[in-house]
């Protein structure tokens, strides 16, 4: 760990906020992507059953 001195709070806070926001964005994107993929798979399967 580098010596951050009197700016430790500002540096660590900035990095934590940025990485935290990015983590939330990735998690939301992943959840929405999975949900959409599962929804489309379900509806396509239902369609195939009806047609078949």
């Amino acid at each position: 760990m580098p010596e951050l001195g009197k700016y430790a709070g500002a540096v660590l806070g900035s990095w934590a906020v940025t990485l935290g926001l990015i983590a939330v964005l990735i998690a939301l994107t992943w959840v929405q992507s999975r949900k959409a993929r599962a929804g489309l798979d379900a509806i396509e399967a239902r369609r195939k059953r009806k047609e078949g």
Binding site: E3, K6, Y7, A10, V11
Partner: peptide, 11 residues
């Protein structure tokens, strides 16, 4: 700026 310069890598 001391160590606060490290903020530029996220800002």
């Amino acid at each position: 700026f001391g160590s606060s310069v490290k903020i530029i890598y996220v800002h």
